[in-house]
């Protein structure tokens, strides 16, 4: 159809590569998304404490990791950290090798990058919370922790879900940059397959479709979550 040639897909080696690529992309996305949400929650929680030096540290973290390209962060983690001495001795060979594997470098960079964005998303959720609710909780005698966990966090989570969906879909797509530091994910193998077969267009179309399907599953799940968590008077609860 349209002169496209997909005969290379019959090669078991290429099937295996695509499968391995998808699995590694999913692993990287799942790991960095979970870590990013955790970092986002901890950071936003830290900001509610209103302690000067904690605020300053969190803001510095956000500025550094939100304002630098994730590709550069990965390259830095992969090439520079090991040169700066982050190395261990491999017991089997006795050689001094970098502590962080390519996958670890990519997962850490993506987690920190996503985490910085998530802190801002959660913070906006907390800050846009109607004052009246906070005041009502206070007047009912809720302490600071109880107020955060039982009132502020659940409402903030609902408010910031659409923003979080954006961050997670972007994070998912950014995993493709890990191919530059040799993480064998989907784009890494896609490049090798079209270099072998010269079927650039066909490989690109297939990989595009795989990303559309995978990211659509994520956005669909997030939309379901939003609908389930909707509460009357806000967002989908209207």
């Amino acid at each position: 159809m349209f002169g496209l040639d997909y005969s290379w897909l019959a090669d078991p080696a290429y099937q295996q590569w695509l499968l391995t690529g998808v699995v590694n992309t999913l692993k990287l996305a799942a790991l960095s998304s979970s870590a990013a949400i955790l970092i986002g929650m901890l950071g936003a929680l830290g900001l509610t404490l209103r302690i000067f030096w904690i605020d300053a540290l969190i803001e510095l973290f956000v500025e550094v990791f939100r304002n630098t390209p994730p590709l550069l962060q990965m390259l830095f983690a992969y090439f520079t950290l090991s040169s700066l001495g982050l190395r261990v001795t491999d017991p089997s060979t006795g050689l001094s090798v970098p502590l962080l594997s390519a996958f670890a470098c990519a997962a850490i960079s993506l987690s920190l990058f996503g985490g910085a964005l998530a802190i801002e998303a959660f913070r906006s959720g907390i800050e846009t919370m109607p004052r009246a609710i906070v005041d009502a909780a206070r007047s009912l005698g809720y302490g600071r922790w109880a107020r955060f966990w039982r009132i502020e966090a659940p409402i903030a989570a609902r408010i910031c879900l659409p923003g979080l969906t954006n961050i997670l879909t972007n994070l998912f797509k950014t995993t493709s940059q890990a191919s530059v530091i040799t993480v064998p994910e989907l784009m890494y193998y896609a490049g090798q397959i079209y270099n072998d077969t010269f079927r650039t267009l066909e490989v690109m179309i297939l990989v595009l479709l795989i990303y559309v399907v995978l990211v659509s599953i994520l956005t669909f799940a997030m939309a379901r979550l939003e609908a389930l968590m909707a509460f009357p008077g806000y967002g989908r609860g209207h």
């Binding site: 090439f79 491999d90 001094s96 040799t182 090798q192």
Partner: peptide, 16 residues
Amino acid sequence: AFKTQPEAYRALKDNR
């Protein structure tokens, strides 16, 4: 597999 030769040479020196 790296994108460029300098990266591969660097990684070899790093014992990757």
